[in-house]
Every structure is written in structure tokens, then in C-alpha cells.
Amino acid sequence: MKPVNTVLLASGDNVVVLAASAAAGDRVRLSGRELALPEPLGLGHKLAAHNIPDGEKIIKYGAPIGSATRAISAGEHVHLHNMQSDYLPTYTLDAEHQFHSAKS
């Protein structure tokens, strides 16, 4: 249940980045509020810096990197399940190591 640092890469970003790998239950501090992570997350993964409405641009490095595909609460993991590219579909390997579109 250790504290884990996050990095805000540019002012105005609505996501922060984990500065180390975190176990479930590890604590992060977001705008003065501390919350426990419900799942383990690797270094570099994104958390919502505040509540993000469905369809809003996700801002990282001060630039849009895609859009929310549903409402995201502050502190929630932001990844393939709740945001998508505004340009190209993202492909990942599933548990069976089959190539598939993360959007399907």
C-alpha cells in the first residue's frame, strides 16, 4: 500500500502519468486528494486528473491524444477501455495473442 508519484507533463493536461509501477491498493495523490488504485498499473499508464465527460479530448503533453468514449472519473485509469484515437484504430494482442482492433 505504498504511495506512488504521478507526473503532470504539461499544465492543462487532464491526465497524469504514473512515475512507477503500482500494486492494487497503492495510493496516488491527485489535486490534494488521496485515492487507492483498484488494480495494479504499470509505470507510464495514465490516470484522469479530474472528471472527464464522454467525448471530451484527452490532453497529454498539452496536446489532444484522443477522446473519451465514456465519462471518466478523477483517478480512473485512462486507456483503451475508455478513450480512442481521433485518427487510427489501436491494435492490441488479446489473451490468445490474436491481433485485433481494440475498438471492436
Binding site: G66, H79, L80, S85
Partner: peptide
């Protein structure tokens, strides 16, 4: 994506 990147533009 395993490393936390979600989109091409990111």
C-alpha cells in the same frame, strides 16, 4: 499499449 500508450497521436 501494455506500456500505457493508448493512441497513435499519444
Amino acid at each position: 499499449a501494455d506500456g500505457g500508450l493508448t493512441t497513435q497521436e499519444e
